[in-house]
């Protein structure tokens, strides 16, 4: 089951570039939360701070507190530990090119040293079913490489890979921006399915997408969070002028 996320005074830098400034935010458990804003506003940096991927870049720096469930992820544990509890799906599908479909899904467990084949089989099947890919690939799980699938299938494979480690939170960084409309709608259906089980944070530049899948929406601009509220409120009656300008397409 998912857990909530509590962000306090989060600041992030790339070199001297102050990309996130004083972010405070409570993300509810077992719901989908969308983050919108023009490109370069810091929303991607924000989700990368939630599983400490931001700091994989040597010039990056973070201050502030992020609590996932009851764990203070910057003080109580190492990056590896928190990343096992927080799954991530990236903008471009990135299956492991040398691995079969099966090994791609099982990668998170196998590479962490898990070797019980019966259990792995079960988990691979369940994860692929949960990501609505099972029927399309069940016949050549071990024959085909992950890279041989179509773009939309690859992205669902990446979602299955993230689900296989049974995360509490699922971060999605513009998961449909590199996909065609049919694949996009499949991914959106999937998010709708999954949000009862996982806490989902989805970054998107597509406002319709945010409106379709998320209960809560946050609007980012120039490294600050301008407004965070229920999706309905954000899209119908935003309290900040800048949010309204963005929603109505007056800039960005």
């Amino acid at each position: 089951m998912g857990v909530g996320i509590e962000v306090t005074n989060l600041n992030a830098w790339y070199g001297t570039n102050h990309t996130l400034q004083d972010i405070n935010l409570n993300i509810p458990a077992n719901h989908a939360t969308a983050l919108i804003g023009p490109s370069g506003c810091g929303k991607s940096t924000f989700v990368r701070c939630l599983n400490r991927m931001h700091e994989t870049n040597p010039i990056a720096r973070v201050t502030g507190t992020v609590r996932i469930g009851d764990l203070d992820i910057y003080n109580d544990c190492k990056p590896v530990e928190i990343r096992r509890r927080v799954g991530m799906v990236f903008q471009r599908p990135n299956p492991f090119p040398t691995m079969s479909i099966y090994d791609n899904v099982a990668a998170g467990l196998k590479l962490n040293g898990y070797s019980n084949h019966h259990v792995l089989d079960e988990i691979v099947e369940r994860s692929l079913k949960n990501s609505a890919l099972w029927d399309e690939v069940k016949d050549d799980l071990k024959k085909k490489s992950g890279a041989s699938l179509s773009g939309g299938q690859q992205q669902r494979l990446c979602i299955a890979r993230a689900l296989a480690v049974d995360p509490e939170v699922l971060l999605m960084d513009e998961p449909a921006s590199a996909l065609d409309p049919v694949s996009t709608s499949k991914i959106e259906d999937l998010i709708f399915q999954l949000k009862s089980q996982y806490t989902i944070v989805i970054v998107t530049h597509n406002m319709q997408q945010a409106a379709r899948v998320a209960e809560k929406t946050g609007f980012f601009l120039n490294g600050r969070m301008v407004e965070f509220d229920s999706t309905h409120k954000i899209f119908t009656n935003p309290s900040d002028k800048r949010t309204e300008d963005y929603i109505t397409g007056r800039f960005g």
Binding site: V80, R84, V165, D166
Partner: peptide, 20 residues
């Protein structure tokens, strides 16, 4: 050998340490 435990996986992963 039936449906695997969700929490079993999590317990296993949590037991893996941080390999620092």
């Amino acid at each position: 050998g039936a449906q695997p435990e969700a929490s079993a996986i999590r317990t296993f992963l949590l037991s893996r340490g941080n390999s620092a």
